[in-house]
Amino acid sequence: MKVLVYPPNSMILSDLVERGGHEAVVLMKEISKHVRDAEIDAPPINITEEDLKRALRYVSVEEPAGLKGRIGLLAPLLEKAEASIILSDAPPTFGCMGCAVADEFFKFLIRKREIPTLEVKYEGGEKMEEMVSEITEFLERLSREEKKG
């Protein structure tokens, strides 16, 4: 299954999804397309006019440019996701989009898609294992459901 993770650039969540036998839907892959696209003559993360136009499917034209750019970049992830894992309260170093409003809005958009979603709170220290187990169980459940068809 294609599993979208939030924060969308979390290497740890991405790794957990891949280990669980699923395809991680993450921002790094989207950005890598920008990097490899010979038509884009700009720094790697620099969003394009197409990204901004794509954002208009989700946000109004009045929204700040940076929010539109972030949502435009994230929109393809949202559209291809078949399941998702939302990790809340993670420290910025765990992964984030930098803009609190974009973060909140993207979580809202994921929930609105009504795909199987696990919402889990980030726990540091000893509780980290419990958090990882919860994610692993969710991924196993997805595998079972996928086999059932």
């Binding site: 993360i45 901004l52 940076g66």
Partner: peptide, 12 residues
């Protein structure tokens, strides 16, 4: 700045 690359204007 807080990320002008997301606004698509860094090149400019």
């Amino acid at each position: 700045s807080c990320g002008t690359e997301y606004s698509g204007i860094q090149w400019m």
